[in-house]
């Protein structure tokens, strides 16, 4: 009785997945073209090996910095330990602006600004992960959405005096002279990178419990103020 009831459901589920897959094939083809930008460092598909960058088979669902045998930056290893897992959402943020998600990644890539390019590239990468059909799609609205912050937020002019006061909360851990020993440096960052990174903590995209907690109660003006202050700190 139960088995009979289950069967039609399973068929239905298969059909939905199949339909989704067919729709994605255009994206995969387009993504293969976008992957041209990655090819000089990364291999993917049968026989792929680590080159300048790690091979990208089975990427989805893997913790950051966890592919054995490849020497990652400390920053990438740390992100993995802190809980960063590669999903459609985190990869999208990383590919858009690698250093905003993993500050000192060795991946020397400026980032893909086009949301459509990123969506296609992810569809392509996804097809080389284990059981791609089983990988949960990011919620439909997330797909193809540009992760750019509201330009109004990036355009905010921070008040460095306010930033200096707020920074005293940061310097309980992050050293004002930029030394980084166990806790990363936060001085001298380009303002946009700083703002994007802090908002990524605030939105809980970027992992780390202390930083998520600290960023959670900073408003847009306060993040802008901190960015303005730390940028010029020597």
């Amino acid at each position: 009785m139960q088995a009979k009831a289950l069967l039609p459901l399973a068929v239905a589920a298969f059909m939905v997945a199949g339909a989704g897959h067919a729709q994605d094939s255009d994206a995969v083809a387009a993504g293969e073209k976008v992957f041209g930008k990655c090819k000089s460092c990364h291999q993917i598909g049968a026989g792929a090996t680590d080159r300048v960058g790690p091979h990208l088979n089975g990427l989805f669902g893997r913790p950051a910095g966890a592919h054995e045998g490849y020497r990652y930056s400390k920053s990438m290893e740390r992100a993995g330990v802190d809980g960063l897992v590669w999903t459609a959402e985190t990869l999208d943020a990383y590919i858009e602006n690698p250093k905003s998600l993993v500050s000192k990644t060795r991946m020397n890539f400026r980032g893909l600004k086009s949301g459509a390019d990123r969506a296609n590239l992810l569809a392509y990468l996804r097809s080389f992960s284990d059981n791609p059909a089983n990988i949960p799609e990011a919620e439909p609205t997330a797909k193809g959405i540009d992760h750019d912050l509201d330009p109004a937020i990036l355009a905010l002019e921070g008040d460095p005096e306010y930033g200096e006061y707020l920074s005293s909360e940061c310097t309980a851990c992050h050293q004002a002279d930029g030394s980084a020993d166990g806790i990363p440096s936060v001085t001298g960052w380009p303002i946009d990178d700083f703002v994007v990174a802090m908002h990524a903590y605030k939105d809980k995209l970027r992992p780390h419990p202390v930083m998520q907690m600290m960023a959670a109660r900073l408003g847009d003006e306060e993040i802008a103020a901190l960015a303005a202050y730390f940028k010029d700190l020597e």
């Binding site: 005293s168 310097t171 002279d177 202390v210």
Partner: peptide
């Protein structure tokens, strides 16, 4: 927040290293 029981050893090691960074940071402050 609080650390979870049953965390893996890499997380615990990173937490200790972070505490050393914190000590350097807060005493400098």
């Amino acid at each position: 927040f609080i650390s979870a029981t049953g965390e893996d050893s890499a997380t615990r090691k990173a937490t200790y290293e972070e505490s050393e960074g914190w000590y350097a940071g807060i005493t400098a402050d």
